[in-house]
Every structure is written in structure tokens, then in C-alpha cells.
Computed example of a mutant assay.
Amino acid sequence: MAFKRLSDLFKQDITNKRVLVRVDFNVPMKDGVVTDDTRLQAALPTIAALKNNGAKVILLSHFGRPKGKVVPEMSLGQLVPALSELLAANVTFVPVLFGDEAKAAIDGVDEGSVVLLENTRFYEGEEKNDPELAKQVAALGDFYVNDAFSAAHRAHVSTEGVAKLLPSFAGESMARELDHLDKALGNPVRPVLAIVGGAKVSSKIDLLENLVTKVDALAIGGGMANTFLAAQGIDVGKSLCEKDLLDKARDIMAAADKAGCKIVLPVDVVVSKEFAVNPPTRTTTPNDTKADEMILDAGPESVKALEAVMAESKTIIWNGPLGAFETAPFDMATVEAAKAAAKLAKSGNVIVVAGGGDTVSAMNHAGVADDLSFISTAGGAFLEWMEGKELPGVKALEA
């Protein structure tokens, strides 16, 4: 898709103009202190670019789930020290989202200043995308910038409503995400391999149905693979398996066959009688799983087979682990395959984009998060994009 960027905004003089910027400052905190400032850091390039062009930067964000009520411990005011330190500049906090108090505060700051408004979700109309609230918030700005892809799948006042009322642009973080997602599925270099893992098929039916029509190969791992193995008549013992979805798994495999998409399933598995740290295990073929055993990871031959498909690919998109990676030794397949993907990405010959759910944790666990082409921390928005769904916050930025 074609969308408007900050470079488009900067074609005009924005000195002293008020720019509303939707960021994602829903950060982890303990005892009033930010414990992980990754999301604050992600917003810095956009804030800096706007400041340097003389704009008044007015930040909008949600925090937690206050459900339309004022919850003091969810106030964005507690982020001011951390944000001010990162910016090496004062941040003016306004304990409301709109109205005279907010307008006066914005009018009272100099060009290049940063203003942080109160938690958007303190207002019931935010999640309902209330048109009246959107008008009141939009009245504070001359332009709107969305830099929060992680919230782009929500049609809220701060992600869509305001965007429809002001000239709207994608921030640096948003643009980087959209550019990489376009390279992964929108207009990819083929062949494209999708790796999808995780526990349950039920949470990823839409994803799988979309991917088999878009990619050249689909590797399925984790507990999900057990359901597909069972759909082929293999007894997976007491492994996690959604037996009510065997027909759906067969439908997905048939759709893949029709679309010319190769399905890659484990050819060997690591099984155990108990799910615990370092229990007795054995590696075997899926159809040799005993009645009292469970499949908890893919085996080394499965990793080799996956690496062979990776080597033939030009684009790899990854969502979800290949086994119970949080518990040793069932992290082997995820770690080894992730290292192989990272090596390909570093070679510059393959684009590797990963994201959603446990994927970020899995890539960090494998020590490769910084080596992939792009890793998305957007969670739900990343998944909905992979499912082929329209994201309201992105749609609103179309050129």
C-alpha cells in the first residue's frame, strides 16, 4: 500500500504547528519505574524529527486496560521522568486528553516542545471510536502522525478517528514496520517460506488459511503440528492435539495442495512421558509416539529438512516457536532453526521477518533477534496483518 510518510509532512513548514502523535507507551512498570523502555525508544526517531522541524509534538497513548475510567496507577504521568531522560528535554504532562486545559498547555509551550496527554483509555469513547471525542482530540492538532503499529488493528479514536479528521502520516517506526511487512507478504521476493508454530491450531486458523494462498512453503511446528500429524492418521499419544480440528487441518492441507504451497511437518520428534525440565526423552518418528508419551519438540532431522527449505527461499516469515522452547531441552528445534534463519538474513540474500506472540521471546532466547531483517513486537497487529485482515490504523494513512 502507498501511505503518507514524515517526508511528505516535511514538504511544508511545520514550525510551531501542533502534531498529534499516536505512540505505544504501554510499557512494563514496577513501583512507578519503567522496567523496559523499548517502546519509548521506538518513538524517539519520530519525536526527534518533528522537534527538529519546529513542531509542537503532542503524544497520545493508551496504558493498561482502565476500561473508560480514571485509574491513577495507569496514568501516563508516571512515564515523564523516563521519557524526559531519553529525550534529554522537558516533557509537559497534561492530565486530560482534550479541552481548554489541554489547549492552554499546548499553546503555552515553545516550538520543538513535547507534550504528553493523559491515557486515551481513561475515556470511554476511545475504544468505541466515538466521533465526538475524536473531534475534541483532533481540535488540539494541525496534523496527525501514527507511530504505533502495535495498536493499528484497533479502530479507536486515537488510531483511526482522529486520523480521518486531520492530514495524517506514518511515523518512522510505523513506516519501517509497513515497509518490512510489504517485503514479507505484500510484494515479496520468491520463493516465500512461512514458519508457523505455537500451541494451538484454533488460534491460527485464519492465519494458516491466508498463508497457504500467499506463500510457496508453509512449515508448521509446535503443538499445532501434532494436530496436522493426527489429521494424517498418526497417533500422537498424549500430545497436545485438537482432535475437533482434524477436518480443518485436512482442509488447510488440501487448500495448500491446490495453491501449490508445500506443507512441511516434523519428520522426527522429541517425546517424553512428562513435561518438565530435562526429563527422560527420546527422539523418534511421529508415528512411533507411545500412548503415554507426548511430542514436545521437533527433532534434528526435522530441523535439517526445514533448513533445506530455508536455503531455497528468498523470503522467510516466522510466527511462533517449533516446540516448548521455554523448557529445556525442548528448545532445540526453535534455537537451531532460528540460528539458521539469522545466518541467511546476515548473508543479505534472504529477508527474514519475525513477530507475534511468543516469537520475540523465542528469537531472544535463541540470541538472534538483532540478526534478523526485522522483528516485530506488535503482537496482535502483526498477526492480523498476516491473516490478511485490513488494519484500520494503517488504512487511515493511505495516500
Rank of each mutant, 00 (worst) to 15 (best):
V19G: 12
N146E: 10
R65M: 13
Y123N: 10
N278G: 11
L372H: 06
L59N: 14
F330C: 07
A338K: 02
V145G: 12
A139W: 08
D179S: 07
L166N: 10
A89T: 00
K183Q: 08
L116C: 06
S7M: 11
K69L: 04
G171M: 09
S373C: 05
A175C: 03
M386W: 00
H62F: 12
V277F: 10
E126P: 01
K30V: 06
F228H: 03
F228W: 03
A82W: 01
L133S: 05
K128G: 00
A199K: 03
L79N: 01
C261M: 13
D292Q: 12
S75Y: 01
D24V: 13
L40D: 10
G379I: 02
A354D: 06
D100V: 13
G54F: 06
N53L: 04
A311Y: 01
T159I: 13
V115P: 09
G233K: 00
D358I: 02
E307M: 09
L60P: 11
G221W: 03
V109G: 03
I205N: 11
G161D: 14
S239D: 12
W318M: 07
R190A: 04
A399F: 12
L229K: 00
I58L: 14
A337Y: 01
P66A: 10
Q232F: 03
L116Q: 08
V80F: 03
A342G: 09
Q136A: 14
S313I: 07
V212E: 10
G221K: 03
G221H: 04
K243W: 10
K69Q: 14
G171R: 08
G380Y: 02
K103G: 10
E209A: 11
E160P: 04
A138C: 08
M294Q: 15
G299N: 07
P191E: 07
G380Q: 04
G141H: 13
T213K: 15
M174Y: 06
A89V: 00
F275V: 14
K273P: 07
S168D: 09
D147H: 13
V270A: 13
V350W: 09
D182C: 00
F374I: 08
V335N: 09
E177H: 07
A88G: 05
G260Y: 09
A105Y: 04
G299D: 07
P188D: 05
N210I: 07
G68R: 02
D179G: 01
A256N: 09
